[in-house]
């Protein structure tokens, strides 16, 4: 399914060099460099607004870098036209934060959607494929339910089944654990791990959830001030004494990431306005 290019032959799935990106006047990413080999599970962490989700947008071609180069599966994303971009996206899977299931379709039709839109497979074949994917996430029995009848964890799993329908080579997870109970977090984490092992996918997980992420990730990248702040193994994160990482790992309210939004001195403001 993947296009054979020189880069695709090598082991690099993603390569970002000196990427600069932002929204109108606000710069989010500035001078970001990142290289991800095939088959890796990479966790991207950082405070809110640090540009983690923008990074996924850049990889999927939904955002365009101001400068620098974004290469996915050997292709320069910003140089692609619409058809080329859609060609690339057929190799990508993305799990959105809240699943983003189509609310007017049943679970079955949601998972069947990519097959019906992208392939000419006959309906009986699609049916078998959909049931296989649903079985993989353990929800074959829920095929005829509507998304509104699912719990948060279940809809995330259905969305996962939909995202892997066309056997992508790169899976992107946007906050896959947010808002889930611990059991669901465990299930999703295990699924991500299993998919990576069985299908040899490359996975990028953007997340805040440190525990589950450290368990499944091969590598952790922390983004701060538009750059890669730290690039390390999960074990190194656990043992790190870096105040920024400790604040993140231990959930401390104040530290290198300040509790207070930038403001004038408290006393000055109280007296000055009186």
């Amino acid at each position: 399914m993947s296009v054979a290019t020189t880069d695709a032959m090598t082991d690099t799935m993603i390569e970002l060099s000196n990427v600069r990106f932002g929204y109108s006047e606000r710069v989010i990413l500035d001078g970001l460099n990142l290289k991800v080999p095939r088959g890796q599970i990479l966790a991207v962490m950082g405070g809110s607004g640090s540009g983690k989700t923008s990074l996924l947008g850049l990889l999927g071609g939904r955002n365009h870098a101001w400068s620098g180069e974004v290469r996915v599966a050997g292709q320069n994303v910003s140089s692609l036209n619409r058809a080329g971009l859609y060609g690339l996206r057929r190799q990508l899977g993305m799990l959105f934060q809240f699943g983003a299931l189509f609310t007017d379709l049943t679970v079955f039709d949601n998972v069947a959607f990519p097959y019906r839109e992208q392939t000419d497979l006959p309906e009986p074949v699609i049916r078998d494929l959909v049931l296989m994917k649903l079985e993989a996430v353990g929800l074959r029995g829920a095929a005829q339910l509507m998304p509104s009848e699912l719990s948060g964890g279940m809809s995330r799993r259905v969305a996962l089944a939909r995202a892997i329908a066309l056997d992508p080579t790169l899976m992107m997870y946007d906050e896959p654990f947010t808002g889930l109970d611990p059991i669901s977090v465990g299930i999703i984490g295990r699924l991500i791990e299993r998919l990576n092992q069985t299908f040899g996918m490359t996975s990028i997980i953007v997340t805040h959830d440190l525990n589950e992420t450290l368990r499944i990730a091969d590598r952790v990248v922390i983004i701060s001030e538009g750059k890669v702040y730290r690039d390390m193994k999960p074990q190194e994160v656990r043992e790190s004494q870096d105040p920024f990482i400790r604040q993140f790992a231990d959930g401390l309210p104040d530290g290198p990431v300040p509790f207070h939004y930038p403001s004038p001195a408290y006393a000055d403001q109280l007296i000055g306005e009186a």
Binding site: R62, Y86, G87, R89, Q97, A100, T103, E117, Q118, A159
Partner: peptide, 22 residues
């Protein structure tokens, strides 16, 4: 509007299906 708010249009776009057409 709701499909946009719940990222359904973005998900479709990422599945290489043009939401404008579909």
């Amino acid at each position: 509007g709701l499909m946009r708010a719940t990222e359904q249009l973005a998900a479709m776009d990422m599945m290489a299906v043009n939401p404008l057409a579909r």
